[in-house]
């Protein structure tokens, strides 16, 4: 499934969760199900510092695909992180680089990306794209 299709699927999951409680219970649940980052990657170098919540992000490149694992000390952030990982992990650097993350607006999560939320999510999304761009330029540079 492509990045666009996974987002559509996620948006469908949220369609009936109209009350904020239901929506966030779902996000919290996803946070709990997020495969934990290997503790050896939960290090300062992989830390994306928000003002309040912290996010650890690790990327692995295998067979022209990038695999992300992550963790956060805040459960709502972790839920949001798990969504981004579900969408972007396992795709090529080019696909990740070009991805339009429209699910944020469609699910009504824009508020999490505001500067004052400082939950590390925005920085994490930027970081994932940066990994992809770096990898992509490496690949195209060596071709």
């Amino acid at each position: 499934m492509g990045i666009k299709e996974i987002q559509e699927e996620l948006i469908d999951d949220f369609e009936f969760l109209t009350e904020w409680e239901a929506k966030y219970e779902y996000i919290i649940q996803m946070g709990k199900e997020l495969p934990l980052i290997d503790p050896r990657y939960q290090v300062e170098a992989n830390l994306i510092k928000g003002c309040q919540a912290q996010v650890w992000l690790h990327a692995e490149y295998k067979d022209n695909k990038v695999y992300f694992t992550a963790d956060s000390d805040a459960i709502i952030t972790k839920g949001l992180v798990s969504m981004v990982i579900r969408i972007l992990s396992g795709h090529s650097p080019k696909e990740i680089m070009d991805a339009d993350l429209f699910f944020v607006d469609r699910i009504g999560l824009r508020e999490h990306l505001s500067v004052t939320r400082s939950n590390g999510l925005l920085s994490m999304m930027k970081q994932m794209k940066l990994y992809a761009i770096a990898l992509h330029s490496q690949i195209t540079g060596t071709e």
Partner: peptide
């Protein structure tokens, strides 16, 4: 067992403005 950020976020959804963080 809970991060202040999570609690603050849910309180905000209920119209309660508190400060969370350091």
């Amino acid at each position: 067992g809970q991060h202040p950020y999570d609690v603050g976020f849910i309180l905000d959804k209920m119209g309660i403005a508190v400060r969370t963080g350091h």
